[in-house]
């Protein structure tokens, strides 16, 4: 019974995902929401003069969205802190 329910759920999820993927506009379509938005036009026009970066990706990651990058860096820091804490606590209890 359980594999059957699992298969059903997975098939439903796959159908939903494929339907969404079919809805998506083709890559580079100028009328796609990501291309037509005024933010994209602003970045294309202003990124070099605002930040002095030739790479627009760097301009967005490290200047316009730098706060988001701080979050990503914090994720890395938290992961390492958790691993070191777990490892050290295991070594400590093994030594006792």
């Amino acid at each position: 019974m359980r594999p059957l329910i699992l298969a059903l759920i997975l098939t439903l999820t796959a159908v939903c995902l494929v339907l969404v993927a079919l809805e998506m506009p083709p890559l580079g379509n100028p009328s796609a929401p990501s291309q037509a938005s005024p933010t994209t036009a602003y970045y294309n026009k202003q990124a070099v003069t605002d930040t002095g970066c030739l790479s627009h990706v760097a301009a967005i990651v490290c200047d316009y969205r730098a706060y988001d990058t701080l979050g990503e860096t914090t994720v890395l820091f938290t992961a390492i802190a958790a691993i070191l804490a777990l490892k050290n606590s295991r070594e400590g209890s093994a030594g006792e």
């Binding site: 930040t51 760097a58 200047d63 990058t69």
Partner: peptide
Amino acid sequence: SGLVFLLNLAIGLKVASTVTTL
């Protein structure tokens, strides 16, 4: 490009040490 250059240095230091420590 001021801050972007320095932030890249900070991120590079962080990611390199994270990957290695991991």
